[in-house]
Amino acid sequence: MSIRSAVRWVVFWIILALTFNAGIYFFLGKQQALEFLGGYIIELSLSLDNLFLFLIIFSSCGIKPVYQRRVLNWGIFGAVILRMIFVVLGVSIVNRFHWVLYIFGIILILSGIKMFFSKEAEGDYKNNFLTPLLSKIIPISPKLEGEKFFVKINGILHATPLFAVLVAIEGSDVLFAIDSIPAIFSVTTDPLIVYASNIFAILGLRNLYFILERLHNAFRFVTYGVATILTFTGIKLSILFFNIEIPLTMSIGIIFTVIMLSIIASVLFPGLEVSNEHQGS
């Protein structure tokens, strides 16, 4: 997919989400509309870091772009189902045990701090913990078989390395859902708003991935923006224990400002980290 086509689709999904947001405003009211907008911005910004991990997985496994689209399609389908399960379970737990929100807040703060100081993961994702686990369930063929997820070798069904990559992609989404679902609880616990904002953020991921695939080196500071958002949402949840609540409009403004500043910093200082790498080598 060309960047121009990918940008058009990303804009389409954003407009669709904002149209849905307008529908919420007219039918459910201003408060729910603000909650959806805040949740959508949070989920979309957190999804950016998920996409960077996808880039690492694909590149380290040597998956050509022609095969990536199918993995992304199935990965997004799986994410929609997984997020629904996480939302239902998460909302049920929060409604029954409200104190869980404070634990979620601490987890988000720790995740944000860890993201600030952790370096970009490197290594061969063929050896991630999910692939050996998968090999115990079904044999894995030694090479790619086009876009196929399964092949028969000597009459025995084998999973292909492409399917192993799909498992790694789905596994990474589970890990990111552990952060993103609690993060949106800082805005709302309404199941409809939580799930809808998640789904609209997920639907545009495939097209956004093709943009980041070509331009990811230009957005080197976005990860720090995402880390800041995680920390902020964690603090927002944690201070509820002291009956301190940050207004929703202020939260949306802070989150949007952080992500925009991280993008602007990436554009203004494109070679900063590159030069540091040369100095250390």
Rank of each mutant, 00 (worst) to 15 (best):
E277N: 09
G146S: 06
A159S: 08
L72M: 13
I169E: 01
K148S: 10
L237W: 06
F150C: 03
F232S: 04
L272C: 02
G23C: 14
A164L: 12
L101F: 00
L205Q: 09
I63C: 02
P270Y: 04
L157D: 08
Q68W: 01
N207E: 14
V258E: 02
G23F: 15
A218L: 11
T131N: 15
I106A: 15
L162I: 04
I202M: 10
F232H: 02
I235M: 11
R214C: 00
F54C: 11
P142I: 06
N198F: 07
S197P: 08
L110D: 05
Q32A: 06
I264G: 03
L261I: 13
I85G: 13
R69H: 12
I199G: 06
T131Y: 01
G234A: 08
Q32F: 02
L55H: 06
T223N: 10
G280M: 15
K126I: 01
Y67K: 11
L166R: 06
S266D: 07
C61Y: 12
V91S: 07
I76M: 12
I109E: 10
W13D: 14
H278S: 09
T257C: 04
N243M: 13
L37G: 07
I156F: 00
L18Y: 13
I246Q: 01
I14D: 04
G123Q: 01
I254K: 05
V267E: 15
E35K: 02
G171Q: 04
F26G: 10
G204M: 08
P142L: 06
I103Y: 09
E273D: 12
V165H: 03
M115T: 09
A159E: 01
A227E: 09
E145S: 14
L48I: 13
P182C: 08
E145H: 01
